[in-house]
Design a binder for these strands. Structure first.
Lengths: 158, 158
DNA sequence: AATATTAGTAGGTGTGAACCCACTATAGGA
DNA sequence: TCCTATAGTGGGTTCACACCTACTAATATT
């Protein structure tokens, strides 16, 4: 026995730890996975929460509009909408003017669900950002917002 | 410029943008994808770079040790090692003392490759962090390092 | 010597995400 | 009316990632 019980012998390579993008990727993946688990326990997926949030924040959308906003494939959105409608969290109604369009809107139950999901997300965030105090978290949020804005501005899609 | 030409109708829901973990996840995914593309253009994957970095930073490892350090499945590491050895970037040698073990080490070509990959990663990072100036990037790196340390300390594995 | 344990390898499985095509229904223009 | 385009839907493909199972070779234990 060379080493008694070393969980990680020494840790990750400094060459990687020195890359903010590496840390971003690792941390983001962890956060995503943890929230994903919690949503899965409710029979939901991450996109479900995104769709609920979009509807709650911006009001009813035709599905096509939701797809553009969230950069989600129409075919995939149909499945998300199915799931949410089955749970009574969104309602679908044919647009009277253009009967091809289906207008999707959150129900009260949907808003309540979103509040719970948001609480879950905050809980995960508390876990992940545990090493940071409140002001540090604000700084982080500010920096991330800038970076995110740069991404969506510069390149469409990716 | 606030909105020269809005590509997406309005943007993502504030409910999500308010979550640092959401931003972390999105940004990290983008960075990962962009670096992944560049590595793929060389016939490499992200794990290949991680393995090269570990060997360059910490010296030769038995494959088992590499697996523990990087939290990578032994079976998957075998494939990575195959690819790197085929390109002449690592060398595998049976351990004389314990002939089951295969000691893996970087070659000079491997170090040169790692330098190039690191340059690629920096280039992607420059793209992604474009909205931030140098001091802001330092602050971000510092915060991310703390968060990352908290993750690996608290929970092993995920 | 017999047995159990460990290192490495080959191949396969399950999942999630993104994407694509075919199809129906509706709308709009010639 | 005929033709084209658009909204939504169902089904399937592709890809990467993590994980798992057998199997061989070598070592350690008894």
């Amino acid at each position: 026995m060379t080493s008694p019980a070393a969980p990680s012998p020494d840790g990750m390579p400094p060459t990687l730890l020195d890359l903010s993008t590496y840390l971003l990727s690792r941390i983001g993946r962890t956060a995503r996975a943890r929230l994903g688990e919690r949503l899965a326990a409710r029979g939901l997926r991450l996109w479900d929460m995104a769709v609920l949030a979009a509807l709650a924040d911006f009001g009813p959308h035709a599905q096509r509009e939701l797809c553009e906003r969230l950069a989600l494939d129409p075919s995939d959105l149909a499945k998300v909408a199915d799931r949410l409608a089955a749970g009574g969290h969104v309602e679908r109604a044919r647009d009277g003017a253009d009967r091809r369009r289906v207008s999707v809107s959150v129900t009260d139950a949907g808003r309540a669900l979103l509040a719970e999901l948001d609480a879950e997300a905050r809980s995960v965030q508390d876990e992940v950002l545990a090493p940071l105090d409140a002001p540090q978290r604000e700084v982080l949020q500010e920096l991330l917002l800038r970076v995110h804005a740069g991404l969506t501005a510069g390149r469409l899609g990716l």
